[in-house]
Design a protein around this nucleic acid. Structure first.
Lengths: 241, 241
DNA sequence: CGACACCTTGAAGAGGTTCAAGAAATGTGG
DNA sequence: CCACATTTCTTGAACCTCTTCAAGGTGTCG
């Protein structure tokens, strides 16, 4: 665990439109800078926190890409999300004061450490920050509702289509291409997230390629026909009447 | 929508060990009473809120039983949870100021309405309340992580076993039996929650009955062998080495 | 008592998994 | 920088779990 004390400032971070500073005025932003004083680097493959570890902070991702996963007692585990720059992780730890999932960097990453006690102090003083913290948590709840819908009622091709559209949309928000993306995770990790085996993920990719919907070269994916993907997500199970 | 202004008080509610008052001292409790001024009755089959409705309040369940569900654009929907007395619902509405799921009463119910703006005001003044609100949201995130694990990696019998154990445990916390329960939802609703068809739920119940693990008479379930259920949840996929 | 919603059970079928083998990419050490 | 080990990905074939379709049974409520 490498914790560095670099000079950090939300106020001139290029993620401020996406991350914690959202909706704060200049004065409030400066006070946020006092909270976010340390950054932490996490090299690819290492964990930011692990199931069972004491909870003390939330983490805003500055660079890099994470997966979070929960483990059952018998060993199997489930990827619960993939997180990228500007997103906040660690919320699972609040309720029991201990983390209940693992957060692993899928590429070298850097996060801003936000001590949670101090975040609570500050959000009692800054209404906009309080509201923002609530929204971040609510957003995560709504996201998970969507994943439950996906896992509970969609077929393999619908799941993968929804996954690709979601990823590329979030990347686009961050200034990347609308049609091209590099997957940071393996087929197995995608499968775990989508409730499928890695072979099924691979086969479904191949099917999309055959149909001319995407181009796939290993982890490089180009979306040729986004509308086809949207159609797969929305109309697969539409019963006619 | 029936909104009543009955004299309400958290301070002498018999759910105070489970619900919002948890961890507040007497003085703080009295201030909470000022927030929770209205109750609302919801008859069986009616909704407390619906997808798309403006968000204004969280609801603490006093009596009754709810299901929440999200809908896909093509009409199918997914039950995302079953909620009972002492639990708080409505968190999904915070992020976008509008609800993104439906909350429907599965039996006649009564909820305490907590205006969210006022809850935010109050939780800026009462540290313990702020912390409690954060824990409620975090608990919901952790719960959904567990459901993702269930939906993503468990087989039908594991899902139903986990579901029964979870339900009976929560009921037991509320003073009900550890071994007997009355299901408030249909097989179809259970199936939707567990990502299964109603026939599969029915068959799995029958299988448990054959194995002597439970007794089932319609919606009345008696758990004869809870350890067998726990074993089903935990060891099904244990690969021997 | 009849209509309706809900539940159970059977048989056939589909979608996804498992097992297996080989190919492609990536990383490591000499 | 190349050879080799390792990880990752793809594809095929057999299998299995759950779904679908169908019919009949049970319970409930006006």
């Amino acid at each position: 665990m490498i914790t560095q004390s670099i000079k950090v400032a939300c106020s001139n971070c290029n993620l401020r439109e996406l991350c914690m500073p959202l909706g704060l005025n200049e004065d409030e932003l400066n006070r946020l800078d006092d909270l976010v004083t340390t950054r932490r680097k996490v090299v690819r493959g290492d964990s930011l926190y692990r199931n069972g570890e004491k909870f003390s902070a939330l983490y805003a991702i500055r660079t890099g890409f994470f997966k979070t996963s929960v483990a059952a007692e018998d060993g199997r585990d489930q990827v619960t999300g993939f997180q990228m720059a500007g997103e906040v992780i660690g919320l699972d730890g609040i309720v029991s004061d201990h983390h209940t999932c693992d957060a692993v960097a899928l590429e070298d990453a850097e996060v801003c450490v936000m001590n949670f006690d101090r975040l609570e102090d500050l959000s009692r003083e800054i209404n906009a920050l309080q509201r923002h913290v609530h929204k971040i948590m609510s957003r995560e709840i709504v996201r998970e509702n969507g994943v439950m819908l996906l896992l509970g009622s969609m077929r393999a091709d619908e799941r993968l289509a929804a996954f690709l559209l979601n990823l590329v949309q979030r990347l686009h928000t961050r200034g990347f291409s609308q049609s091209e993306l590099v997957l940071r995770m393996t087929r197995e990790e995608i499968g775990s997230y989508l409730g499928l085996k890695l072979e099924t993920v691979s086969r479904t990719f191949s099917k999309f390629v055959e149909e001319g919907i995407v181009e796939v070269k290993q982890r490089h994916v180009r979306i040729l026909n986004p509308d086809a993907l949207k159609l797969i997500v929305n109309t697969q199970n539409c019963q006619p009447i």
